[in-house]
Design a protein around this nucleic acid. Structure first.
Length: 204
DNA sequence: CCCTGATTCGC
DNA sequence: GCGAATCAGG
C-alpha cells in the first residue's frame, strides 16, 4: 500500500482527531500501526508544538539545559482535549444484533441528552427484569471480580459495562476481556444482548 | 495482559 | 520514504 494523497489525508485527519495509530491503521487498511506511526513522524505531526522553528534555544536543548534545580512547578496550561469522551459507544459498525434487553427503571430516554455529562451514552443497566436469573447472578458475580477500570482505560477488548453510579466516586467499568468483537465480557453480553427469541420453537 | 507512541535501521 | 522490530511506557 502506498501513501496516496487520499490516505495521507485520512491519516492527518484522524490523527488530528486524536485517533490512535492502530485505529488509523485499521481504518486505512493494508498498513500496520507501525506504518502509521512512521508516517506520522515523517510528516512531522507527531507532537504539536505551540512554537516551532526558532524558539528558545534553551528549550530546544533539553540535555544541556537541565539544571539540577528544583523542577519549577509551572502551571502548564495545556489545551488538552479529552479527544472523544464517549469511548463507550463505537460509532463504526452500528449494525450489531443488539436487542435492548432492559432500559433502566425510570430512565427518561428523551431527556438524557445533554444534562448528564458524567455518564456518557450508557449501556442498559441491569435491573430486575426479564433477564434470565442465571445471567443476573453471573453478572453480580462478575462485578466482584471485575477489574474496575476507568473510562480512559477502556479499549476495544475491555468490557465496557458500567458498574455503579456515574455521579458517584464508586463508578467504574467491568474491564474484563471482551468476548470477541462484543463490547462486553461474556457475562455482560448475556444480559446486554437478549436472544430475541421468546418463543422460538413454537410450531415448527 | 492489553494497549500507546517513539525510535532505529535495513530495505 | 517505508515499515518491522524494538524500545519505553501506562
Amino acid at each position: 500500500m502506498a501513501w496516496t494523497d487520499d490516505r495521507v489525508e485520512t491519516l492527518k485527519r484522524m490523527w488530528g482527531e486524536g485517533a490512535s495509530a492502530s485505529q488509523i491503521a485499521k481504518e486505512l487498511g493494508g498498513v500496520t500501526r507501525n506504518a502509521v506511526i512512521g508516517k506520522v513522524h515523517r510528516l512531522g505531526l507527531s507532537n504539536r508544538n505551540a512554537d516551532d522553528g526558532k524558539a528558545d534555544a534553551a528549550a530546544a536543548t533539553p540535555v544541556a539545559a537541565k539544571p539540577a534545580r528544583a523542577p519549577a512547578p509551572e502551571p502548564v496550561v495545556e489545551p488538552e482535549q479529552p479527544a472523544e469522551a464517549p469511548a463507550v459507544e463505537e460509532e463504526e459498525d452500528d449494525d450489531e444484533p443488539r436487542t435492548m434487553a432492559a432500559v433502566p427503571h425510570g430512565t427518561n430516554v428523551t431527556s438524557l441528552r445533554k444534562p448528564l455529562m458524567a455518564g456518557q451514552p450508557l449501556p442498559p443497566q441491569p435491573s430486575a427484569n426479564e433477564i434470565s436469573p442465571e445471567a443476573l447472578a453471573k453478572v453480580n458475580a462478575v462485578e466482584k471480580t471485575a477489574k474496575k477500570i476507568s473510562l480512559m482505560e477502556l479499549t476495544e477488548r475491555t468490557c465496557k459495562w458500567p458498574i455503579g453510579d456515574p455521579a458517584t466516586e464508586k463508578f467504574w467499568f467491568c474491564g474484563l476481556q471482551t468476548q470477541t468483537g462484543k463490547p462486553y465480557c461474556e457475562a455482560h453480553v448475556s444480559v446486554a444482548f437478549q436472544p430475541m427469541s421468546s418463543r422460538r420453537d413454537r410450531k415448527r
